[in-house]
Amino acid sequence: MSPDLPLLIAKATFDTLRMVAIAGLIGSLIGLPIGIFLATSGKGELFPAPNINRLVGLIVNATRSTPFIILVVAIIPFTRLVTGTSIGTKAAIVPLTIATIPFFARLVEAAIRDIDKGLIEAARAMGATPTQIVFKVLLAEARPALTLALTMTIVSLIGYSAMVGAVGGGGLGDLGIRYGYQRFRPDVMLIVVIVLIVLVQLVQSAGDRLARRFDKRSRKN
């Protein structure tokens, strides 16, 4: 057993990274436009559609308030439809992606709403179209905040990915449950936790550094 341990951990780490990367990529690609929509479709805003805005907001809230472990189980039919299976790493990517979308969307919304309304007014006064305002002003100005939002999303995803282990999702969480908990191997559990901590630290500091580089608001740059 022991000689296999490094291999097991490497494999589990790879599975976790794969789940986080794919769910993070797809989830944020879908979450980004939803977040932009939420931030710009209120009454009197760039793309006014207050009713749809409320509806989308409701769906986002509903998804976010569903405990992740329940979400995983609840969408099994959908997961099976998409991946053909309801267990394993591939299947785990589906609920992870679904959970990422509203999480990231709300962070995007907050990042965009945080931008000084004066900038939108200035762009309108220049004759910018709403689409130009989104791409040339809002997304450009929100880039540091969006970077931090993505960082936070990935960190959360790493945590969620450990949870899908409980339902046979593979990855570090799965390893921790099966070896560390069910086979009474505290050493495995410890290693799993340490690897997760290191992953989170790496993601967070990389995200912070990138956000700082994008942020031109301080005089240091």
Binding site: L119, A122, Q132
Partner: peptide, 29 residues
């Protein structure tokens, strides 16, 4: 609006763009 310029109390410059980029913005638009 492209034929009417406007300046503001709080300048409303884009912090993410350089001086050049800010002046270029209405032209890009």
């Amino acid at each position: 609006r492209r034929s009417v310029g406007m300046i503001f109390q709080h300048f409303n410059l884009l912090s993410s763009r350089t001086v050049f980029g800010n002046v270029a913005l209405p032209l890009e638009i």
